[in-house]
């Protein structure tokens, strides 16, 4: 429950800083909706009706971009956050911005890409079957950056995505008095040291 509120609403962040929360949440929700909409490119065969419902999600791209710009603005303008930022923090935002903007440009301007072709390519990817790609520059930028993003996922701060689910301060159950939690290394140590502790502490029986 605690975890669900944290992941969906960013509860702790809301408590701490309303602006960061606003921009951060806008960005993540925008991203999520946009990603859902992208599923159409991977769906094998014809699209079921349900995809009409997600059509309006394309406007989420704006939420995402606004969120990103807000976050970037804070990172530059607020002295405390500037202090703690490394170059990679900016680069990551720029990367996301480029992806977001190039995507939005394709969708909302007359630079439409041949979506059918994209779909063939994307579905092909799932089966390791390399199809031809459209060659519009926006699209290439877009997809290239996405690949970069995926490549650095495991070695960058994007690890916060799985991280939030593993955070002990958020996912542990409060039952220490009722249940004995002991990690394997501590248990091993306990057994090994039993003898020595008896010597130092006197009898324990």
């Amino acid at each position: 429950m605690r975890m669900a509120r944290e992941v969906v609403l960013f509860e702790s962040l809301f408590k701490s800083n309303k602006w960061t929360w606003l921009f951060g949440w806008l960005f993540h929700v925008g991203l999520l909706l946009v990603l859902i909409r992208h599923a159409r490119y991977f769906w094998p065969g014809d699209l079921p009706e349900i995809f009409l419902l997600v059509q309006p999600f394309k406007y989420a791209a704006f939420a995402m971009v606004i969120g990103l710009i807000g976050l970037m603005g804070r990172r530059i303008a607020v002295e405390r956050i500037r202090y703690i930022s490394a170059p990679s923090d900016y680069l990551m935002l720029i990367l996301m911005l480029v992806i977001g903007i190039s995507g939005a440009v394709m969708t909302f301007t007359s630079n439409h890409t041949d979506v059918i072709m994209v779909k063939q390519f994307a579905s092909g990817l799932l089966t390791f079957d390399w199809a031809n790609l459209p060659t519009e520059v926006h699209f290439l930028v877009h997809i290239f950056m996405v690949f970069v993003l995926m490549a650095i996922f495991p070695i960058s701060k994007l690890l916060h995505v799985p991280g939030v689910f593993f955070s002990p301060t958020r996912n542990q159950v409060d039952d220490a008095r009722k249940k004995r939690h002991i990690s394997p290394w501590a248990l091993r140590q306990e057994k090994e040291q039993e003898v020595r502790l008896n010597e130092t502490l006197g009898k324990d029986e």
Partner: peptide, 20 residues
Amino acid sequence: KYRSVQVFLDACVKCGACTD
């Protein structure tokens, strides 16, 4: 040994919420 240490070191996104 401590999952907490590793997760905490990896997960920070430098959002700055804790700074004040």
